[in-house]
Write a protein that binds this DNA or RNA. Structure first.
Lengths: 340, 340
DNA sequence: GGGAATGTGTAGAACGTTCTACGGCATGGC
DNA sequence: GCCATGCCGTAGAACGTTCTACACATTCCC
């Protein structure tokens, strides 16, 4: 009695029915009378029965969805998580997060581990792996990819995807700055890596170039890294030039903070001497002391959409869906008209 | 061949041995000859066999450890995660994170879910639940609790715990400020909740009181909340007083940022008119623009310690261990001698 | 040379579910 | 009254491991 957990067999004995019947009731499957339903539910409550996920996994579902996080420090990842869990709150599904690390190797290890644990579906956030690897995973389990812009169109049938429209986000920033009167607008991006194709920073940089071109302006992209230090170094280099830019658009808020520091040290006041904009709208961007103009991705919507698509996929949809979430520009104190 | 995953039986067939033998090799159990070891390992590699966690769970271990996160926005939680995963990198264990939410109810749901999935052990980060609930969980599975100061001594036998020495951290701050010449030092803490006993903010406030008393100074604690807004409101109230404090020690960095904003708005310069110190040493505290004096908890060590204790526990230790990690004070630009 | 001890391997029963068959019982149409 | 047709319930075989027995060789010791 006290030893071991209560199983479906215990419930069946208590209710005076077969284990198969209990299983049906638990799963809400077809073919149970109201009377049976009542008897079994009562027995379940009395005994405090909880289904054993591992045993379920051997035949059916685990009702477990995995979210692989590429980088736990990603500032809007809590928003995405909240979106996912919020959407799934009233379902039977449970969400577990897998810290995949930044390395392709460790990410692969994590996805393997999630498949080994027979999760019903996976959400991969900014996965760093080849399209072939992605396709292999999607062949084993339903997958939704977040934050990775469509790779080779062909493979896209295997999984769904949710992205922020980074091209639009970049355009919003450029339009805003041009509207204020800026013409020399530089962009700081993340140093290109081998598998970076389709990753947000690449797309943002491309969106920036397109938007500048649309305004008939020359683009000016500098690749450092999406860190405070990276933003600082990049800005220092840009500000040392003869015809220094009057505005810097950093591809990530954390880099924008570094840009602000560089402006401080160069004795430039923001936004009079230099306008600064970021991307991601991280929490501290809204602090009065920082007040950074930034692009907001609404991670909440992204997460909720990913969860919805994944459940649809698990429950049978085979046609693949690519959803794009529109970002919004949050104008704050670090951008303004250039000094004449 | 293409259908379904490769099982232990496939490996056994290929190697020409029994499934039991393969199982032994996989688990590194006693009673395998070198020859058998070689044959089986080769077959495993050739077939790309991976053990099925759910099937394992039914009899043995799952090699899965769960980390329940009370709040995914907690700024040093990535450090803890990294400490945990770093420590476990070269073991067979996999770490999965469970977003438990802030509510006791959702946290309980998450721990139940983790137990249902037969995880081998659980690390609970700042769990909000009664000692009885905690004991119940610890009775079902090995548990290490992080960030919760020892409750009723008796129940402590059931699980291990790792805490930051918050009393010491608070003392470091007070000693530092007193050393600079401050005497009117106020403390902003988080509003008390029912189950908050033993939670960090309570202990920090108590440590502050002790330290002030040790210096023969009057304490001054104001409870708002650990948010930017909470810090702002608290500071505004404190700074409106006749004999306003010359230093404010906020129990969390995020609140300290609010204090800085309040100082800005009141036209007070930091640290000349007001010294400000925080707790947690979150990433942005080190940004030159903020440069906040803070207490560093070394989440990395905390996480690694928790992981070590959990594995020890799983592998047999029954005596319970309470580990305390010493914080360090990081002095930056927001603290200085008071203006005479 | 006859146990005892030791080392290697295997058979087969768990573990707690799900799911495919199928059986029994009403109902209803003819 | 007989056969199809639903509906409800059950038996029992999976699912992929682990683990307890036990069988079979060796080796060792007296």
């Amino acid at each position: 009695m006290t030893s071991g957990r209560v199983t479906i067999a215990d419930v069946a004995r208590r209710a005076g029915v077969s284990t198969a019947a209990v299983s049906k009731v638990v799963r809400g499957a077809y073919g149970v009378s109201a009377e049976m339903q009542a008897k079994v539910t009562q027995a379940i409550d009395e005994l405090g029965y909880r289904p054993h996920a591992a045993a379920r996994a051997l035949r059916g579902r685990t009702y477990t969805l995995g979210v692989m996080l590429s980088d736990t420090r990603n500032p809007f990842f809590p928003d995405i998580i909240e979106g996912v869990t919020g959407r799934l709150r009233d379902t039977e599904y449970q969400v577990l997060l897998g810290p995949g690390g930044i390395e392709p190797r460790t990410q692969a290890r994590m996805t393997d581990a999630m498949i080994d644990r027979s999760m019903d579906g996976l959400i991969l956030i900014s996965p760093v792996m080849t399209d072939a690897e992605l396709a292999a995973i999607a062949a084993a389990v339903p997958v939704v990819v977040v934050g990775r812009h469509g790779g080779a169109g062909a493979s896209s049938a295997a999984y769904d995807s949710v992205v922020d429209d980074d091209v639009m986000g970049a355009r919003l920033v450029v339009d805003h700055l041009v509207g204020l009167g800026h013409t020399r607008i530089a962009h700081i991006t993340h140093l290109e890596r081998a598998r970076a194709q389709g990753l947000p920073h690449t797309v943002r940089a491309e969106g920036y170039r397109q938007a500048m071109r649309a305004h008939g302006l020359a683009d000016d992209v500098l690749a450092t890294s999406f860190t405070e230090e990276g933003g600082f170094e990049g800005a220092r280099e840009l500000l040392a030039r003869d015809d220094r830019p009057t505005a810097i658009f950093a591809g990530a808020d954390i880099a924008a903070l570094g840009v602000l520091r560089a402006a401080d040290e160069a004795g430039l006041s923001v936004p009079e001497d230099l306008s600064v904009a970021g991307y991601d709208n991280i929490g501290i961007a809204s602090l009065k002391r920082i007040s950074l103009t930034s692009v907001d991705q609404d991670g909440h919507v992204i997460g909720a959409t990913a969860a919805r698509l994944l459940v649809e996929r698990i429950e049978g949809r085979s046609r693949s869906v690519a959803s794009s979430v529109s970002p919004t520009l949050i104008v704050r104190g670090t951008t303004g008209p250039p000094r004449l």
